[in-house]
Each structure stands twice: as structure tokens, then as C-alpha cells.
């Protein structure tokens, strides 16, 4: 059946595309551009204005995502542990209009210590083709992406800390 499909419907075109793209596309480190977003205090904040001196950990999360809420207490600990070492943590919330009303209450209830910015249009997620919640990104002082981690299960915080340490020692 698959052979027939390949023969009859020029499926090789698809494979040509995929193979060419995957084999030849060399990834350059992507940079997250500056965006002006509202924080949960309803103030406009420039993303680049609140960066860390050395690294910034950006956590893309939503209120309806269970792994996101599991990750937040661990990110609070990371924030406390590294804020004196030039590392900032930013929670980039991507709740849509249906659930965005709950962002301030959930943020305060979970006692999130680090800044929360709201990107209701998922503009930054879309710009970098992130499709999983949570997605955690570590960027350097120029907002060049150094590390990406998708999803969260208990124990992942060790991997994230290890990535921060690795970047700090570079």
C-alpha cells in the first residue's frame, strides 16, 4: 500500500523536501527579540529590560497545564538559588482569552517569586515554533538561545540546574 502511494502520488516529493530540510539546514543559535508585554500588575514591561546579567531562564506556561504548575515550585527554588549569580527567571504566560483571567490569581496563589509576563497571542511561542507546555529556554545576555527543555516531570529540575551551571561556567 505504501509502495503504491509512493509510486502513484509522487510521495517522493515529500521525502525530498523533508530530507533536504533535515539534512542541510544548519541551526544557528536563535535569538529572542524584544517584546513589550503586560505583567500581572497590568504594567507594560520590555522583555529585554528584565533580563539577567549572565543568563535568563524563560518558562513558557499556562494555567491549564498541569506539568507547568508542577514545575513552578522548582523554578521558584532556582530563582532564589541563582538570582544573586546573574541569572533571572521569567514566567512567560501564554493563556488565551478563555483562561487568561486566572493568571494573576494562580500566579499569586502559587507564590511565584519571579516576574510573570502575559503573551496572550503566543507571539513568542509561535515565532520560535515552540509547541509544548511547559517549554523552558535558557538565553544568554544577548537573548541567544542556549538550551531548550520541553515538558516537565519530577527530576527535570536537576537537568535544568545542570544546564544553568554549564552555561555559567562557559
Amino acid at each position: 500500500m505504501l509502495f503504491r502511494l509512493l509510486k502513484d502520488y509522487k510521495m517522493k516529493k515529500i521525502f525530498t523536501t523533508i530530507i533536504v530540510v533535515c539534512a542541510f539546514a544548519t541551526v544557528q543559535a536563535q535569538t529572542i527579540k524584544n517584546y513589550t508585554l503586560q505583567n500581572i500588575e497590568n504594567q507594560r514591561v520590555n522583555l529585554h529590560d528584565i533580563k539577567g546579567d549572565k543568563l535568563t531562564v524563560i518558562d513558557f506556561w499556562t494555567t491549564w497545564c498541569r506539568p507547568c504548575k508542577k514545575a513552578i515550585p522548582q523554578l521558584n527554588k532556582i530563582y532564589k538559588q541563582y538570582k544573586g549569580k546573574g541569572v533571572q527567571v521569567i514566567g512567560l504566560n501564554s493563556d488565551g482569552p478563555r483562561t487568561v483571567a486566572k493568571v494573576p490569581t494562580v500566579s499569586k496563589g502559587l507564590q511565584i517569586q519571579y516576574p510573570i509576563l502575559i503573551d496572550m497571542n503566543s507571539e513568542i511561542m509561535n515565532a520560535h515554533n515552540f509547541s509544548t507546555f511547559p517549554t523552558l529556554v535558557i538565553v544568554d545576555e544577548t537573548f541567544k538561545i542556549k538550551y531548550i527543555h520541553e515538558g516537565f516531570v519530577p527530576g527535570d529540575e536537576e537537568e535544568i540546574i545542570s544546564a544553568i551551571e554549564k552555561q555559567l561556567t562557559k
Binding site: 523533508i18 530540510v21 544548519t26 544557528q28 536563535q30
Partner: peptide, 10 residues
Amino acid sequence: LAQLSGQNIA
């Protein structure tokens, strides 16, 4: 100066 990025879902 430049960067290429993207995603393919098959």
C-alpha cells in the same frame, strides 16, 4: 548576522 529556524511535522 542571520539565522534559519523552523519545524517540520510529518
